[in-house]
């Protein structure tokens, strides 16, 4: 492939995201720059917990007993999540629910391998979740690439790109392992150590640099919610 061709692709902004002139229904023409108009790209801030320690512990307990998972199946691990809803495992007992929208969820389960293309969507979904939020890396692929360790298109270390609270090893881990992992996460939350969102805000530049190193067609704002 030729060089200028590649440069064009690296900048590679899709047509619907380009700055353009739009004619409104009332006939007035105005300029639209989707990336800056449709998204807010203010940097995330570190949000301290409640002032009183006892209130914060109560909140942490509530957070740990009410884990709402974002239903985003990234890889084959998404299949292992479904049995958790069935009568045999019934994760609802432990206060675990699935929410279909990132706005309402506070636990992101990255289920399996992440291709660069999916990573982009994962980052966007993660940033739309509300602080505090937690990430669970499910399966070997999120830990060191797993069986895709030499693949040209899957990331090898999830914690380079997002702050991970718990890894669940296995290829694939059984639903029992998932439940054990969630219990571990609850323990961490109750101890007040699951501050992934603040970690992300503190080391924002480092995470962004890592993300941009692998995502070549960066056509979104730096932080979008």
């Amino acid at each position: 492939m030729r060089d200028e061709d590649m440069n064009e692709r690296r900048i590679g902004v899709r047509d619907e995201l380009r700055k353009r002139i739009v004619k409104g229904p009332d006939g007035i023409e105005f300029e639209v720059d989707p990336i800056s108009d449709y998204y807010c790209d203010a940097r995330p801030e570190v949000r301290p917990g409640a002032y009183a320690g006892i209130v914060e512990s109560l909140f942490n307990w509530a957070r740990s007993e009410s884990l709402w998972i974002l239903g985003f199946g990234t890889g084959c691990g998404a299949i292992e999540m479904r049995p958790l809803m069935t009568p045999r495992f019934d994760a609802y007992r432990y206060g675990i629910q699935w929410r279909p929208t990132p706005r309402q969820a506070n636990l992101f389960v990255v289920s399996g391998y992440l291709s660069v293309k999916t990573l982009k969507r994962v980052i966007r979904s993660y940033e739309q979740m509300q602080n505090p939020k937690y990430v669970v890396g499910l399966g070997s692929c999120t830990i060191n690439g797993g069986m895709y360790w030499d693949s040209y298109n899957t990331i090898k270390k999830l914690d380079q790109y997002l702050p991970v609270d718990v890894y669940i090893a296995g290829c694939m881990p059984r639903p029992e392992a998932l439940l054990a992992g969630f219990e571990e996460l609850k323990r961490i939350i109750r101890a007040g150590k699951a501050e992934g969102a603040n970690l992300y805000a503190e080391n924002f530049d480092w995470y962004k640099a890592n993300q941009k190193r692998v995502i070549h067609d960066w056509d979104m704002p730096d932080y979008n919610w």
Binding site: R47, G49, A50, L58, F59, A62, R63, E65, S66, T86, P87, D90, Y92, R93, G95, Q97, N106, Q130, N131, P132, A197
Partner: peptide
């Protein structure tokens, strides 16, 4: 044939949602 949520789950969800920081 599931156990279902704990009976006090709604309270916990409420507290959690009020406790979200952003």
């Amino acid at each position: 044939r599931r156990h279902g949520i704990p009976i006090w789950q709604n309270y916990i969800d409420l507290v959690k949602n009020y406790a979200l920081r952003t």
